[in-house]
Amino acid sequence: MNAVLQYAVQGLAAGSFYALAALGLAIIFGVLGVVNFAHGAFYMLGAVTAAVLLDTLDLTLWWSLLVVPVLMFAFGVVVERLLVQWLLRLDPLYNFLLTFGLTLVLVELVKQKYGVSGLPYKPPKLLSGRVDLAGVVLPRYQLFVFLFSVAICVLVWLVMTRTRVGMIVRASTEKPDLARALGINVGRWVTPVFGFGVALAGLAGVLAAPFRAITADMGNNFAIILFAVVVIGGLGSIVGAVVAGFMVGLVEAFGQAYAPTYAQILIFVLMALIILVRPAGLFGRKEATA
């Protein structure tokens, strides 16, 4: 029983990274129609930035949770203005080429500067060690990651469902032309939305920093799983991204515990099964299949 709970918390913590990053990916895809293949690289940059901030400025995780998303938002805005905006009118093939190319550039730049061996990262004292919850001993940090990312997801959901900005994002996602014809300047929201999505990937990276080996390549495998998450949840679906993120984290953790050889394969088996039953993903709209 104890072991099962430990795997569950481990899975939910891992799922937190997927959920946050997939949420960013879903919002970007919704408003821009761009599938951002550089999302894994943005996640990696978030983790590397946190490690560098700790090393050079002695900024702990608490600060990084605040500072890194802001920096990543700014970086996202620059990338959107410089590169991504030119994709919006082009064939989706260019979207793949550009964002994938950007990934290679970012990964190589980080390798040049920080090498290929992992950067060290220690979480703050408060989050180290284990906590005893009525006889069940669980790692504090994993619990924190899960609770923190759930809070962020709830916050994003509230913004999306309760505010005018959220309403505009939903309308621009569903029928962008109609939104324009109803007087909404959809173009004005493109840059901040991209920045926000990048910031979420960066935040996932910060949370992953004490938990994963921080290397230039850490985003590569992450990105592959992330796309399985997005397919399972339904491309462009915000709730789907979050639910599928946690689901994949759990499958991964239990897979590694009970069938380590098949842990990764299990995720893609799950993906294939879901595509068979619901081609648009768990929460995707039917139109998405067309």
Binding site: R164, M167, I168, R170, A171, T173, E174, K175, L178, A179, L182, G183, I184, R285
Partner: peptide
């Protein structure tokens, strides 16, 4: 052109007053 992801009231409130 009714939005499925918006409630009836949100559909009404989406366009700005002109």
């Amino acid at each position: 052109g009714i939005y499925a992801s918006l409630s009836v009231e949100e559909n009404l409130l989406l366009p700005p007053r002109v």
